[in-house]
Amino acid sequence: MSNHAATAAIDHHHDHTTTTGIPNKKLFMWAFLASDCMFFGALIATHLIYRLHPVPGSQEPQTFFSIELTSFSTFILLMSSLLMALAVNACQKGNVPAVRRMLLGTIFFGCIFLACQVYEFTHFVHLGLTLSSSMLGSTFYVLTGTHGCHVAIGVLWLVMMYVRTYKPHDGAKGSKRWPFSSLLHVLMIVTAIVFTTWTVLDATHAILEHGFTGEAFGAYLGHGLIPLIAAAVTLVGCRLMARSASKENFGEANAIDVESMGLYWHFVDVVWIVIFTVVYLLEYL
């Protein structure tokens, strides 16, 4: 647009083009999060109401919950929020390699959280808690499942943001194929995440069943060869594809986008803290 914006220092805390000084994207995200609060509020209220009116003899949370596992995953999500904040900070300073590292870290920790959720859900189903087995099943899975969907969407967004940090300038080498190559990169990374999570969970199950023995390794390879190979292939593929054709068109000016992403991610984290307290911890009081 105007030339002098390119050379002027960016004030990350004041946008002079808006009436209030708050960037439009940030205000939008805050308003959206207010709405999302009400969303989770209704789900948490439903869960609490049914905990206050339990059907006599129906399934009880303490039978299923493992506070150790869930505390671990809660801590992981909290740490992912730290990494997200560091990513925002790095972007505001124009340190693109650090942005990439912090985004990858957030993605990694977010995936650990999701893997723990998947593990927890499959374990509970094994023990007989399903959507239709009791009111607890209904409210628990819908509430934590909705939260898990929010985390998954966040991870997808983080992956897209990570790929975005490699975008070349308009007209530079690689810019014409960028729309398609970026999509390919995103799909490759998401596939790698899915298969890696799958194979790690397989390995975990094998170890839990057989201990740290050769037997476990054998069982693991017997059951889970395909996801293991797929994970290895896609991870290598990601590593090979991760080259820039030319200097990236990403830096301080994009900090608002990373910050909006950060707001969303922190929100998802805060909601989990509330869910962990209300759904898990409160049962032990």
Binding site: D36, F39, A42, T46, S132, S134, M135, G137, S138, V142
Partner: peptide
């Protein structure tokens, strides 16, 4: 959001067997 969640719960009842509003399930 309130009606969104109400509709989600109703849809879960109708399509996935949850019991949010099913008296027989304690709803």
């Amino acid at each position: 959001p309130a009606i969104t969640i109400a509709l989600v719960e109703l849809m879960m009842d109708r399509s996935f067997g949850t019991g949010f509003f099913e008296v027989s399930a304690g709803g």
